[in-house]
C-alpha cells in the first residue's frame, strides 16, 4: 500500500510557475490551431474564396503552429525530465 501522496503545492517558485504556464500553452495550442484552421470558413460569405490565397494562409498558419510546438516541446521535455513521474498536468486538466 502506498503512502498518501503529499498535497500538491499551491504556489510555486518562478521556475515552476513558468513551466506550469508552458503546459497551459501546450494544451491551448491545438485549440489555437483549430481556430486558425476553421477561420477560412468565415471568409466565404460571398461566394468561393481564392484558392491560392487560402492555401498560403493555411500553410503559414500550419507552419507557425509547428514552430511554436517545436519551441514548446523542447521546454516541456525538460520539465518532464525534471519532474520525473510526478505529474503536474492535472492542474486545470481534464
Amino acid at each position: 500500500m502506498k503512502a498518501p501522496s503529499p498535497p500538491r503545492p499551491v504556489f510555486l517558485a518562478r521556475h515552476g510557475y513558468r513551466s506550469r504556464r508552458m503546459m497551459d500553452l501546450s494544451r491551448l495550442l491545438p485549440v489555437a490551431g483549430l481556430f486558425l484552421f476553421l477561420l477560412p470558413l468565415l471568409h466565404q460569405a460571398d461566394g468561393p474564396v481564392s484558392t491560392p490565397a487560402t492555401l498560403i494562409y493555411l500553410f503559414s498558419a500550419w507552419f507557425g503552429l509547428i514552430v511554436v510546438a517545436a519551441l514548446l516541446a523542447r521546454r516541456l521535455a525538460r520539465v518532464d525530465d525534471e519532474s520525473g513521474t510526478t505529474e503536474a498536468g492535472r492542474e486545470g486538466g481534464p
Binding site: 495550442l29 491545438p30 490551431g33 492555401l55 493555411l58 500550419w62 503552429l65
Partner: peptide
C-alpha cells in the same frame, strides 16, 4: 483544399500531445 483536412486533424492531435 479539402484534402488538407486529412493532415490538419493529426497536426492538431500531435501538437496537443500534452
Amino acid at each position: 483544399l479539402e484534402f488538407l483536412t486529412i493532415y490538419l486533424g493529426p497536426t492538431l492531435v500531435l501538437v496537443g500531445w500534452w
